[in-house]
Design a protein around this nucleic acid. Sequence first.
DNA 1: ATGGTCCTATACCAGTTAGTCCAGTACCGA
DNA 2: TCGGTACTGGACTAACTGGTATAGGACCAT
Lengths: 239, 239
Amino acid sequence: MTTGTASTQAYEQLTRDLTVGRYAPGARLPGERDLAAQLGVSRATLRLALGRLESEGVLQRSAQRGWFVPTQVLSEPPSTLQSFTEMARARGLRPTARVMRQEVRPASMDEAAKLRIAPAAPVIEIDRLRGMDGTPVCFDVVVLPSARAAALLGADLTDASLYDVLRQTCGIEVHRSAYTLMAESADAELARLLGITAGAPVLVGDEVAYTSDGTPVLIGHNKYRGDAYRFEADLFRRA
Amino acid sequence: MTTGTASTQAYEQLTRDLTVGRYAPGARLPGERDLAAQLGVSRATLRLALGRLESEGVLQRSAQRGWFVPTQVLSEPPSTLQSFTEMARARGLRPTARVMRQEVRPASMDEAAKLRIAPAAPVIEIDRLRGMDGTPVCFDVVVLPSARAAALLGADLTDASLYDVLRQTCGIEVHRSAYTLMAESADAELARLLGITAGAPVLVGDEVAYTSDGTPVLIGHNKYRGDAYRFEADLFRRA
DNA sequence: ATGGTCCTATACCAGTTAGTCCAGTACCGA
DNA sequence: TCGGTACTGGACTAACTGGTATAGGACCAT
């Protein structure tokens, strides 16, 4: 016998099987009972090994269905709302953010209309410079009605996803966003922040986010470095 | 296989497809057997999801006929595939196009891969300068396999929508497009064509269009004047 | 002896799968 | 008009899945 605990040995054997290609990408592994018998361990022990493999992303679990080998192709990226933080993490990059402003002020006419609140009603504005692995990628302004999101004023948004904080501390669940994208040139100030030259192309996204009952809860204004960000969507043509 | 049971995952995926406009109001969904295969789930599980959607009024069942999208569900306008021509007409503008190239050439490696055809297989490339009311707005390159779209070579695309021509003369119905958007600077040549200064921001869209059976039929590469075009989409957050 | 850790074995549950059979519908050619 | 055929959803079953909880055995340091 080699060394280590039984669960570690099962883990290592599975790792070997996977790297060798014993189980094809997308395929389902044998059931836990069979697999445990094959590896000569009990089912409980097997599950320790499987859990470890799952946390490493080498395997995916699906309740009542089985264990699957992840498909390397990130299949169809649907028009799905993915936060900057999530996107960065999905690509193995470390999302960073520097909060540059976080304060309450009266809403402008335009903001009041978009958020369906009274003009000059108090809103929270948060400006952040966001990046991946330290490189600035996006200058991000969000505006929310302070009546609904007061808790956000004290929140630390350096590391967290705004959507996550919004859900956890304010109980607000963003369901849909109306997104508008356009191309602009960076002015001197933005160029300085993003570390690009003035006049360089910038992808500008304007967002209005809604909860599932259709209430607008957030206005976003994002300016991305043109050379560091792409927007992907699936569009369907009606029959 | 993120979280939740398989049936709720199927339910959520269907919800997304419906809100995103994958199935038009009044249209019939694929049969349960096909749909189950598409979602990677068994038919019994799919029917759980369908039943839930029916109880919410999002779908209507018709025994021995199929599942239908209610016609009156006037949800928010989904991110729907709209051709340049359609968009212009919807805004009361007169779409124009100047065909600058319309020829057959061998496919590049990249194009062959995207269109799933043999490398160097013949493709049709069509370059057009498109505008609204005479003002140039977009430089547009489309590439299609000539095996499927040979009839396009002789077509007059000055006034017509490419999608329309594709349907009428080639029997090809575009159903879905994977769209990628980014911001770039106009080079001298493009600036000349669009009537802007070199270095001005340009919104670049890369498109791969598919028929309903998932076959890629078209590659598009569009460069829009940054000051004349915006892209709008509704995004939905996966639950 | 004690308690902790790792492992095995067993059992039950709710969700899922693949399969079968059925009756109703739609369509097409004779 | 008739009949054949292919497809549809409806209903059901048996086998299987991971999720969870339980109890007990083996080993080890204290």
